[in-house]
């Protein structure tokens, strides 16, 4: 059996093996140096939360309620404080505290790379987002079993992280394989007195990930995308999706690549001071395309449900050369009616 093989043979650089106990010690070490966030329990679900004790970490979690985008681009962000007479009184100060985001599954790591393309790309880069990304070490965790709604293999964004992490962990039999992806990751490993990984460890990792891939039966057919979508914009499937959709916007809140926002002024009770905020918005909400005189550029619900799917699977490829979906399945889980991208695209014949 694979898992009975010992980590022997030639050591591989930047790769070590840790027992569960040693991994706990490693997290303890991180806690002393950084603010650490990772998968912790919230009721019977998991969320990315502040970690104060290694024992809180749920290494076996499947998915979290919210994706990690909230650490880089929070639901409410202050742009600046203002005084109606005096003007801009205080600007947002950049955070200089280093932090570690621990236990991100590969789909969420891939989603951060996609957010980078949007918020840190083109002519305008969001300096605050960039700063938060720079201040954060990402420790990924390869998947041990697919979730009910996962379909990451469709996009090659999981179950194995291939880029975008400083360190990636894979759970093996009775131990974890830790591999560095960046110089910062190598430094983290360098602080450990852990044995170097050998070919057998890597072989076991490959075998385990192969099992996870085989267990992931949900597949969104991407071969004919975005063409299949573009050629059938008025496909009858949308009539059904429109009937199912309640325009609640849950799918976009939990989406790791959704980034749309409003800019709001919050005025204090003194009616003089306040702050200007960026607030998450959703293309699924009826007000999203509403302008003055109550004109609505996307007042029709069919147009809104299409906008989400077309942005992810067609427009994003035209804008950034990649699909805007990573197959995490959160939108299906969060939807009361379980509107499912996999179903929709399968019906269209992607």
């Amino acid at each position: 059996m694979v898992h009975q093989l010992k980590a022997t043979g030639s050591a591989v650089k930047g790769k070590v093996v840790l027992t569960a106990f040693e991994l706990g010690n490693f997290v303890q070490l991180l806690l002393e140096r950084y603010d650490v966030y990772g998968p912790v329990s919230k009721g019977n679900q998991a969320v990315f939360g502040r970690v104060s004790d290694p024992a809180e970490l749920r290494w076996d979690y499947v998915t979290t309620l919210l994706p990690p985008k909230k650490f880089f681009y929070a639901p409410f962000e202050t742009l600046f404080h203002f005084h109606r007479e005096l003007g801009i009184t205080e600007q947002q100060v950049l955070n200089d505290r280093k932090r570690v985001l621990l236990g991100l599954h590969p789909c969420d790591v891939a989603a951060l790379s996609l957010l980078d393309r949007v918020l840190d790309g083109w002519e305008y880069s969001d300096a605050e987002y960039r700063d938060k990304r720079d201040q954060t070490l990402v420790i990924a965790l390869n998947c041990a079993s697919p979730g009910k709604y996962c379909f990451c293999t469709s996009f090659g964004t999981g179950p194995e992280a291939t880029q975008g992490y400083d360190l990636v962990l894979t759970e093996l039999e009775g131990r974890f394989l830790a591999e560095a992806g960046t110089e910062a990751g190598r430094e983290l490993l360098g602080s450990l007195a852990a044995p170097a990984a050998g070919p057998a460890d890597l072989w076991e990792k490959a075998a385990r990930l192969k099992e996870v891939r085989a267990a992931m039966t949900r597949r969104l057919p991407t071969e004919r995308l975005p063409r299949a979508l573009n050629e059938q914009f008025d496909h009858p499937v949308w009539e059904q999706v429109k009937e199912d959709c309640l325009s609640c916007g849950a799918c976009t809140v939990v989406c790791p690549t959704c980034y749309c926002f409003n800019v709001w002024d919050r005025l204090n009770l003194d009616l003089a001071t306040g702050e200007r905020k960026m607030v998450w918005d959703s293309c699924q909400l009826v007000d999203f395309g509403r302008v003055a005189l109550d004109h609505n550029f996307r007042g029709d619900r069919t147009a809104r449900v299409k906008q989400r799917v077309y942005h992810k699977l067609s427009y994003f490829t035209q804008q950034y050369g990649e699909f805007g979906c990573v197959g995490c399945g959160r939108c299906v889980d969060a939807c009361i009616k379980h509107i499912d991208l996999v179903d929709i695209v399968s019906q269209i014949g992607g």
Partner: peptide, 19 residues
């Protein structure tokens, strides 16, 4: 064209039409 705009710098998503 007119669209709802919150940012003006191609980030907020409101004015998207196609790509």
């Amino acid at each position: 064209l007119e669209r709802r705009m919150e940012c003006g710098v191609a980030k907020c998503g409101h004015c998207m039409i196609g790509p």
